[in-house]
């Protein structure tokens, strides 16, 4: 239970505003994740060649991967618009997930280093952003009338359910990611706690820990994939002509 007793480095009532709280560890990790993604992205696209080598190959594979996700949900003419969003979401969430798998850093009793995606506020922010974007593009690409009609299709009495769906979509999209990553981190912390109890504990914890880290890596990838996949599903619901 060690990790659960760790405190978050909170900065409450920032600037004297009562509702404005910062979890500084989240802020740090968001910054680190963004920085890593940015550096990787830029590093991969320096010295680009027509015949790709090494890192550029990997990034092009990534683009094709995201293209595939988009292509399975909507036609490519409109889907092209969302490729940068999908790529950035995928890269950011994957890197954020991995940050917590590799290590959890504790300074004193304060938990500084973890996955930023192990915080519901952050995942819900991303989910809200996605849903808001889907509404924005729904209006932009199909016009206000078609967008509004989407709520009463195929039958008018579905309207309340459709409205509820928008909120439940947001919640499930955010909380699914949070839950998976947070659960992974709890188990990792428990195993670390076990390892810290003594020689026997260390030996006992090593094998499950390695296994769980591997599994968390897998989950981190899968969750990033699912998040992008569902993002494109929601977008295509709003953007495509026939749904």
């Amino acid at each position: 239970m060690n990790s659960l007793n760790h405190e978050a480095p909170m900065w409450e009532d920032a600037f004297g505003i009562s509702w404005l709280d910062f979890n500084l560890s989240n802020v740090l990790m968001m910054f680190v994740a963004s920085l890593i993604v940015f550096i990787l992205g830029v590093a991969a696209t320096r010295n680009m060649q027509r015949y790709p080598t090494g890192f550029q190959n990997f990034m092009e594979w990534l683009i094709d991967f995201i293209k595939g996700i988009i292509g399975s949900n909507m036609d490519w003419r409109t889907g092209r618009l969302f490729l940068p969003l999908g790529l950035t979401l995928f890269a950011y969430i994957f890197v954020a997930n991995m940050l917590g798998v590799v290590t959890n850093g504790v300074v004193g009793h304060t938990l500084w280093w973890k996955s930023p995606t192990a915080d519901p506020g952050i995942t819900l922010t991303l989910a809200t952003l996605v849903v808001v974007l889907s509404h924005y593009y729904g209006v932009k690409l199909r016009g206000g009338r078609e967008y509004a009609k989407g709520f009463v299709r195929p039958l008018p009495f579905l309207l309340p359910f459709k409205i509820i769906e928008e909120f439940s979509n947001t919640l499930t999209l955010g909380l699914r990611l949070y839950g998976n990553i947070y659960a992974g981190e709890i188990l990792l912390s428990l195993l670390v706690g076990l390892a810290a109890t003594g020689v026997g504990g260390f030996i006992g914890a090593t094998v499950p820990m390695i296994a769980w880290m591997g599994f968390s890596t897998f989950i981190g990838f899968i969750q990033a994939f699912i998040f992008v996949m569902l993002t494109m599903v929601y977008l295509s619901h709003k953007v495509s002509e026939d749904h």
């Binding site: 405190e7 709280d21 979890n23 802020v27 963004s34 915080d119 506020g121 952050i122």
Partner: peptide, 22 residues
């Protein structure tokens, strides 16, 4: 709800960071 619950500040920062990254 995780270590700190829902922090408005985190959300704003996340939004800004993500849009900036995008």
């Amino acid at each position: 709800l995780g270590a700190g619950g829902l922090n408005i500040g985190d959300m704003i920062i996340q939004l800004v960071f993500f849009l900036g990254l995008l």
